[in-house]
Design a binder for these strands. Structure first.
Lengths: 113, 113
DNA sequence: CCATTATAATACCATTTGGTATCATGTATA
DNA sequence: TATACATGATACCAAATGGTATTATAATGG
């Protein structure tokens, strides 16, 4: 169980905050796509799609590789794994019985104050 | 292994996008806090802290309980668990050997085009 | 009761964000 | 080579975001 707090996650969290970008990630889960491919699935211009893909790339959630005049966008799971690692810092709160003990103690403190 | 996509995560992802809010969550990990308590740890006004806590509440990452004139802010791990569940939708990409096979196949397709 | 304290509500501001439109550049291809 | 095609770059816009200041409300304590 990892208990160190990963840093440098701001770009990833920022990228994940937009629902279109999250949907783009789920589409890339099924295979690499060009910008044009991706734009075909969203009600926005290619330019807007490219902006989103750039933000995903800045968050290291995808990588972009040139192939001729196309740009192949590929899911990069490492950053997603880091985000999951950050969340794991809280995992004792949803699966550890110590959590219930702690909140019970704090509730008692609150009532007695 | 869960393979359904949790919905209604927008509020949680939005709340997690800000580094101050993520730090607030880590502080609540050590125990419930009032707005004033929290404001003591951040270089911003109480009003700003309260705005952040409201966004965390809207994302269901915390709950707020009145106690006299104070508001007790408490970590609510359920939404964090849902976020972790969403990320788990990608977990095969960082720990499954099938991933390497898939990307190898796609790279071959790309070269042959 | 009165002063203090903790929070709420509102208005306001600068910056960022998500989007468009337009034009430039590089790459296939007839 | 000429032309179409995929993308990049830039400027621009409305709305959301992160913050402040100010004022109001409500609970606590002497």
């Amino acid at each position: 169980m990892i208990q160190t707090m990963p840093s440098d996650l701001q770009g990833a969290f920022r990228a994940l905050a937009d629902p279109s970008r999250r949907e783009m990630l789920t589409r890339l889960r099924d295979g690499d796509m060009t910008i044009g491919d991706m734009a075909g699935h969203f009600p926005m211009t290619r330019a807007a799609v490219k902006k989103h893909l750039t933000i995903l790339e800045q968050g290291r959630l995808i990588s972009v590789h040139a192939r001729g005049r196309e740009r192949i966008n590929r899911l990069e799971p490492a950053a997603l794994k880091d985000v999951a690692g950050w969340l794991d810092y809280f995992s004792t709160f949803w699966d550890d019985k110590l959590n219930r003990l702690q909140t019970a103690v704090e509730a008692a403190e609150g009532n007695s104050k």
